[in-house]
């Protein structure tokens, strides 16, 4: 997880409108910066807020976050690239995280992954061409007693079977 690095050959795609809007800056200044003794400590909440707004973290957004936190952009990139939940590439509208840790594997998580691969026509790590679903595997989601389980964005589904998987996918427009 620690070894994703920025592609320094490709130029950063830029847009004129900032990702970190003045309104978001105000909100973060009032609600988040006050909680920590250093500005840098707000890195994770700032990245979470940016990702919530834009769906992922473009390089320009990370640079803006660094400027806001008064640290170098390399330091913010360092943090952003370390953690699994920060997306440095665009993702689908719904990210399906299927738990693959021991309890879920014992209870048949592979059936779920195979069913999802078939139904969505993508491999683990890919996004459907219409940009709707991204399929990934996750390590322990903390639902060992009710596995196999999967997160659909922020919603956890427990005791999953191939049948109720179909129902969940159909309900996501």
């Amino acid at each position: 997880m620690a070894w994703i690095t920025k592609n320094s050959v490709a130029p950063i795609e830029r847009r004129n409108e900032p990702y970190l809007s003045d309104e978001l800056k105000r909100k973060l200044t009032d609600e988040v910066l006050t909680r920590y003794p250093t500005r840098r400590a707000a890195t994770m909440p700032v990245l979470h807020a940016l990702q919530e707004e834009h769906g992922w973290l473009p390089a320009q957004a990370i640079e803006e976050a660094a400027a806001f936190l008064e640290v170098s952009s390399a330091e913010t990139m360092d943090t952003a690239s370390f953690y699994e939940e920060y997306w440095l590439k665009p993702k689908g509208k719904y990210v399906i995280w299927v738990c693959q840790s021991l309890s879920c594997e014992l209870l048949g998580h592979q059936r779920l992954i195979d069913a999802l691969r078939n139904k969505l026509g993508i491999e683990v790590g890919e996004t459907t061409p219409d940009g709707k679903f991204t399929l990934v595997t996750a390590e322990c989601l903390g639902s060992c007693g009710s596995g196999p389980c999967a997160l659909f964005n922020e919603k956890l589904h427990e005791n999953l079977t191939v049948e109720n998987l179909d129902r969940i996918l159909d309900s996501l427009a």
Partner: peptide
């Protein structure tokens, strides 16, 4: 940060 597989008590 309860992430150890098999652990779900704090949750």
């Amino acid at each position: 940060d309860e992430s150890e597989p098999g652990t779900f008590k704090d949750r």
